[in-house]
């Protein structure tokens, strides 16, 4: 397999960005900003996170000249955001506080008996495919609500890993967490979504 030899679809976008092509910027902003925001939200509150993402794009216009493509464009952008956020946190002397101690969600943990068997097992099978489920507007809205209620750290980890399809090691680098802590964040977040879908399927309520 020699797919690695060339044509890199990102290559021409990067060249256009280096030339300052405004259409290329529009395309890149649309493509990469949601992920950049997910990174920033790991570190900062919503409005500061949005500001950082905006500022980053302005610095990208110059910084892209030095981009050598050793990492993908997405990873490079996400690192810029992460570094800026970390600087900002340092300047206001604050750290990201996260609890990595338990990987089982307390609500789920309560559903096992003392012997570790299911006391309250999952009743229904989610038989529909993800695409079919998402056609349900109420469920989609409910998912939005629950996603925004997740702790920032869990949500960012989940978004970068699932929605933006980063490899584990990239997520760890960008968010500055260990591989085992990433596993905890992902698992906690997924359980919350599982519990939400379960409630929704059983009761029709969010």
């Amino acid at each position: 397999m020699d797919t690695a030899t060339h044509p890199d679809p990102q290559g021409s976008l990067i060249e256009d960005l280096k030339r300052g092509n405004s259409f290329a910027y529009k395309e890149a902003v649309r493509e990469y900003s949601p992920g950049m925001l997910a990174v920033a939200r790991f570190y900062l509150d919503h409005s500061s996170a949005e500001e950082i993402v905006q500022d980053c794009w302005v610095t990208v216009i110059d910084a892209i000249q030095k981009f050598e493509g050793r990492s993908g464009l997405k990873t490079w952008l996400h690192r810029i955001v992460a570094n800026r956020c970390k600087n900002k946190l340092r300047s206001i002397n604050r750290e990201v506080a996260t609890d990595f101690s338990e990987s089982l969600d307390p609500e789920l943990a309560d559903r096992f008996n003392a012997k570790g068997r299911w006391d309250l097992p999952p009743k229904l099978k989610f038989h529909e495919s993800a695409d079919t489920l998402m056609e349900n507007d109420a469920l989609s809205g409910c998912l939005d609500k629950h996603l925004s209620a997740l702790p920032e750290t869990q949500r960012s980890a989940l978004m970068l890993y699932e929605a933006h399809q980063h490899k584990s090691e990239d997520v760890c680098n960008i968010l500055d967490i260990s591989a085992s802590n990433l596993r905890v964040l992902l698992h906690r977040a997924r359980q919350k979504i599982f519990l939400m879908v379960e409630t929704f399927q059983e009761t029709g309520k969010c």
Partner: peptide, 9 residues
């Protein structure tokens, strides 16, 4: 649930 998130976001 995990797949749902991929489609959703």
């Amino acid at each position: 649930s995990t797949d749902l998130l991929k489609v959703h976001s």
